[in-house]
C-alpha cells in the first residue's frame, strides 16, 4: 500500500486505454506514454495492460504504509527512496515507513508508478483508465490528491533482487536536445494546403507550447494555410491526428482526443511515435517526417520487436543480479 503525501493535481491512474466504445463517442484515454507505462509494468512481471499512476508534474512524495514492491519509469526527476537515489527505470522493495520522493522533472514530461499486478481500481467498461472529461474510471474518476491510498492487485511481492533492478532503454530513448522526431502519414486535407505551407510543415521545427494536456498539444511555428476554404462536416479523428484550425497553427490530438472533430487534418502521427509526444514538454521542438503505409507497418513491427528486446534485456539483468548476489 502506498499513500500520496504531496502531488500536484494532475496525476491519474491509466492503463492501455478503454477500447470498443468509440461508437458511443467515448475516446480511449490510456497512458500518454504507453512505452514507459509498459516498461514499469514489465519490471514487476505485470501484464502490459495493468494500471499505473501517470504523473505529469512533480515534485511529489509518497509513503509506503507497508512493505511494498514498486516500479518507476519515464521522465528523469531525480527520484529517491528513503534518501537513496534511484535510476530513471527502477523496480525495488520499499520498507514500511519508507518515503518515495520525486524531484522536479528534468527530462521528459511524465513518470509512471507501477505496483504488483497493477493498481487496484475498478474495471469500468473494460478498462481502469481515468476518463477525465467524463469523470469516471481510474481512482474515482479524478486526479489523485494527498491522502489517497493506492493498493496493488497482487498482495505478494514479485521476486526482486534486494537492491532492486534497473534497466537501460536504448530502444526507447527520451528525446534529449529538445527535438522530437515524429513520423506521420499525410491525412485527408493534406493536399488542400498550399505548397509553401506543406514545405514548412514537413521541413521546419514546431515549438511545443504550454497549451498542452492529456487531450493534446498546441504547436507554434509557421502558420499553415489552405488553398481551399469552407467548413468541414464533423468526421472521425483518433490520437495522433494533426489538425489545423483557422489560425493556421497545428494541434496534435493525444490520449484524451475527441472521437470526432471538424478542423482540417494535415497529417496523422504513426502510433509507435505517439509516446514521444507523451514525453514532450514546453520548449521542445517537433519535426514531422512524411512516411507511407509500408513504413508505418514496418514501424509497428519494429516497435513490437523493441519491446521484445527490452523484455530480453530485463531477463538478462535479472540473471546478472542473481550471479552477483
Amino acid at each position: 500500500m502506498i499513500r500520496v503525501m504531496s502531488l500536484p493535481p494532475l496525476a491519474t491512474v491509466q492503463d492501455l486505454g478503454r477500447h470498443g466504445h468509440w461508437f458511443e463517442g467515448l475516446g480511449s484515454a490510456g497512458a500518454m506514454d504507453p512505452v514507459s507505462h509498459r516498461i514499469a509494468n514489465m519490471l514487476l512481471g505485470n501484464q502490459a495492460c495493468a494500471a499505473t499512476l501517470e504523473i505529469p508534474l512533480t515534485p511529489a512524495q509518497f509513503r509506503f504504509d507497508t512493505r511494498q514492491a514498486f516500479a518507476i519509469a519515464g521522465a528523469v526527476c531525480g527520484a529517491n527512496l528513503a534518501g537513496r537515489s534511484l535510476p530513471r527505470i527502477f523496480a525495488g522493495l520499499a520498507k514500511a515507513g519508507d518515503t518515495l520522493e520525486l524531484g522536479p522533472i528534468r527530462l521528459g514530461a511524465r513518470l509512471y508508478l507501477a505496483l504488483p499486478g497493477g493498481i487496484d481500481v475498478p474495471l469500468v467498461l473494460g478498462s481502469r483508465s481515468t476518463q477525465l472529461r467524463e469523470a469516471f474510471g481510474g481512482y474515482e474518476g479524478r486526479v489523485l490528491a494527498p491522502g489517497d491510498l493506492l493498493n496493488p492487485i497482487t498482495r505478494s511481492d514479485p521476486a526482486l533482487p534486494p537492491s532492486g533492478i534497473s534497466l537501460d532503454q536504448p530502444e526507447f530513448k527520451l528525446p534529449a536536445g529538445g527535438i522530437i522526431h515524429l513520423r506521420a502519414l499525410p491525412s485527408t486535407e493534406h493536399d488542400s494546403f498550399d505548397a509553401a505551407s506543406l514545405k514548412a510543415f514537413w521541413t521546419e521545427p514546431y515549438l511545443v507550447t504550454r497549451l498542452n494536456d492529456r487531450q493534446g498539444h498546441r504547436l507554434d511555428g509557421a502558420a499553415l494555410t489552405r488553398s481551399s476554404t469552407g467548413e468541414l462536416r464533423s468526421h472521425g479523428i483518433v490520437p495522433g491526428i494533426v489538425q489545423v484550425p483557422g489560425g493556421g497553427l497545428p494541434i496534435i490530438q493525444l490520449a484524451d482526443s475527441a472521437t470526432m472533430g471538424g478542423y482540417p487534418k494535415i497529417a496523422a502521427i504513426i502510433e509507435p511515435d505517439l509516446w514521444r509526444m507523451g514525453q514532450a514538454r514546453p520548449g521542445d521542438r517537433v519535426r514531422f517526417h512524411k512516411v507511407g503505409l509500408a513504413e508505418a507497418a514496418k514501424a509497428a513491427d519494429d516497435h513490437q520487436a523493441a519491446f521484445a528486446k527490452a523484455g530480453q534485456a530485463l531477463a538478462d539483468a535479472f540473471e546478472q543480479q542473481e550471479i552477483w548476489a
Binding site: F23, E24, G25, G27, S234, A258, T259, M260, G262
Partner: peptide
Amino acid sequence: AVGSHAGYCYLGGLDPRLETPRRK
C-alpha cells in the same frame, strides 16, 4: 452520429437559415 465526446449527438435537421461558421 454519436461522437466527439461520450454520448454527444450530432444532429441533422437545422434550418439552413441558421447556418453559421465555427468560432475562430
